[in-house]
Each structure stands twice: as structure tokens, then as C-alpha cells.
């Protein structure tokens, strides 16, 4: 058994008095201790559980939108964060090769990858398994297994 090292003592009581401990770069730049005379000392940030995450904020927006529509009192034209999102495209979508980005007239029936020509097809065939899935994931065309 290795002999015990008597170093615990020094670690248990870190010397926090100034000057003795070398300050790290982060501690030197930290502004936590700086005075904030301009700040209301009685103010504390509300610790409400509500409205913490993006999801909750968006849910609140959706609820507001629904209420407005139901009561019908508000100006119907005023947009909300949800309603200003652009609609899906109505234009025909161009197909680009998943490997080279060139025009892709073909689709590999096995991997579902779009490809430019025979050479790219052969390249797709040589891909390690899983890579084609990642290529599809870029387009959001992959199937997610939960």
C-alpha cells in the first residue's frame, strides 16, 4: 500500500487572505464584487417558475394569440411572434446532390440520397454505413428512431 500523503491539511484550509493566493485570470476579471451604486438595493429578480424557457414563452404567446382571436376586440392586423413566420414555399424545389451540391437528377433508392452522376453514385456506395443518414439529416429527411 502506498504511504499516505499528508497533504490534506493544506487543502482543507485554503488560504483566502489576499496576496497569498495567486488570482486566476477569471478572478481578476470578475466584476461580481464591483460596486453598483446605480442599482436599487431592494430589487430582487422575481424567481417565478413561469416564463423561464423559450417553450413557455412561446406557449404564452400562442395563448395570447388565441385569446385575441376569440374575443375579437383587438386589432386583427397586429402580428405576434408566431404569426409572422413565413409560410412554406410554393415554388418548385430544386434538387441538389447531397454529396457535391451539384444538380441532382437521380436518387439512390437504397439510401435515398440525391446524386449528380455515376461517379458520385459509386462514391455513395463506398460510404461507411450511417454517413448517408447524416447527409439526409442535413435536409431534415432522415427518419428519427426513438
Amino acid at each position: 500500500m502506498a504511504p499516505k500523503r499528508p497533504t490534506r491539511k493544506t487543502q482543507a484550509f485554503p488560504d483566502t487572505s489576499e496576496g497569498n493566493v495567486e488570482q486566476t485570470e477569471a478572478e481578476r476579471l470578475s466584476f461580481l464584487h464591483l460596486p453598483r451604486p446605480f442599482k436599487n438595493p431592494r430589487y430582487t429578480r422575481p424567481q417565478s417558475k413561469k416564463l423561464r424557457s423559450t417553450k413557455q414563452i412561446l406557449a404564452a404567446e400562442r395563448e395570447r394569440e388565441r385569446l385575441r382571436r376569440e374575443t375579437g376586440t383587438a386589432n386583427k392586423e397586429a402580428p405576434t411572434y408566431i404569426t409572422i413566420e413565413a409560410a412554406p414555399s410554393l415554388l418548385p424545389q430544386k434538387r441538389y446532390c447531397d454529396i457535391t451540391g451539384l444538380e441532382a437528377p437521380y436518387t439512390d433508392p437504397q439510401s435515398k440520397l440525391r446524386y449528380h452522376n455515376k461517379a458520385v453514385y459509386e462514391f455513395i456506395k463506398s460510404l461507411p454505413p450511417g454517413t448517408s443518414h447524416e447527409c439526409l439529416a442535413i435536409r431534415g429527411q432522415h427518419s428519427v428512431i426513438r
Partner: peptide, 8 residues
């Protein structure tokens, strides 16, 4: 759609 965003 190149990045899988269904949007104009």
C-alpha cells in the same frame, strides 16, 4: 429546404 427548413 437545403437545410431542411420548410419555409419560403
Amino acid at each position: 429546404s437545403i437545410a431542411g427548413v420548410d419555409c419560403a
